[in-house]
Design a protein around this nucleic acid. Structure first.
Lengths: 138, 138
DNA sequence: GCTTGTCTTCAAGTGCACTTTAAGAGTTAT
DNA sequence: ATAACTCTTAAAGTGCACTTGAAGACAAGC
């Protein structure tokens, strides 16, 4: 698989895949005769892992620290576990920040429905849209 | 209250408060005789709201759009509700991304405990630390 | 009256995570 | 064999959200 196919498969741009390789977030990728990257499923899984962690807001530097620990299989189990716990704690805090913000907006929305002076049909439309959103999100 | 006190009270730097004012994320702040900002509780609440939404990853631009809609009390109820729903959907998606990443790391951690060849007392120490972390996070 | 500590504005600088550009090379289609 | 499409590297550029720096004003304390 060349880099373009890998990009389409993962939803990560070719340039970003090259960048991740340079930053050692994914392993060094083997090259073909012509010097082009030949990407296999193992690399795809690694790209997807990086994508997932980046979506969760883990910084490139933390991700690199984490990956280096796991790639260099040495007796650094304690550090690995400490790092995992640290990252999870950070993510859980972020998730809770998000939940707090969501709750805040939910409160605003309810406040709106109580006090808005919209016409009956406008209200019904809005409520239907809101319900559809909730159903869709679920 | 001057800007330094407001900064200490909110945990947002003076420079950032000035920046938020310039970007109209908080209302224009009244000045004293000498031209210094006089910050009241209403502004403090607005700073904290911005802080919360920023922590949740809402961009400055979206936050400004949102705040302008709510500050200009006009007949834009539909837009306001649409915007609220849009923001909540974004945040819920982010929250779910985070949860997926947390689950992934939890899985790794469990995998670790199953396969690691650590000594008994090291394992006990690690497990205790992990449990303490969980208790603390809860 | 001078230092210290606050404030002001405006502009420039920073850090992160990409993204784009430039210049070139190999492969396939007409 | 020329165009079109892919790839390569290295370096420069971009966008966001601040952060820092410069230059100056005002008030309190020694």
């Amino acid at each position: 698989m060349n880099i373009k196919e890998a990009s389409e498969k993962t939803g990560v741009s070719s340039a970003t895949i090259r960048y991740y390789e340079k930053e050692t977030l994914i392993p060094a990728i083997d090259r073909s005769e012509a010097g082009n990257r030949e990407i296999d499923e193992r690399i795809i899984r690694r790209i997807n892992f990086v994508k997932q962690m980046r979506a969760a807001g883990m910084s490139i530097e933390n991700l690199r620290r984490y990956i280096q620990l796991f790639d260099n299989q040495e007796d650094n189990t304690k550090e690995q576990i400490a790092l995992l716990n640290e990252q999870m704690a950070e993510m859980e805090e972020k998730r809770d920040d998000l939940q707090a913000a969501i709750d805040h907006l939910h409160f605003k929305l309810n406040h709106f429905y109580d006090h808005v002076q919209a016409s009956e049909e406008e209200l019904r439309t809005l409520e239907r849209q809101h319900q559809e959103k909730l159903d869709q999100d679920k």
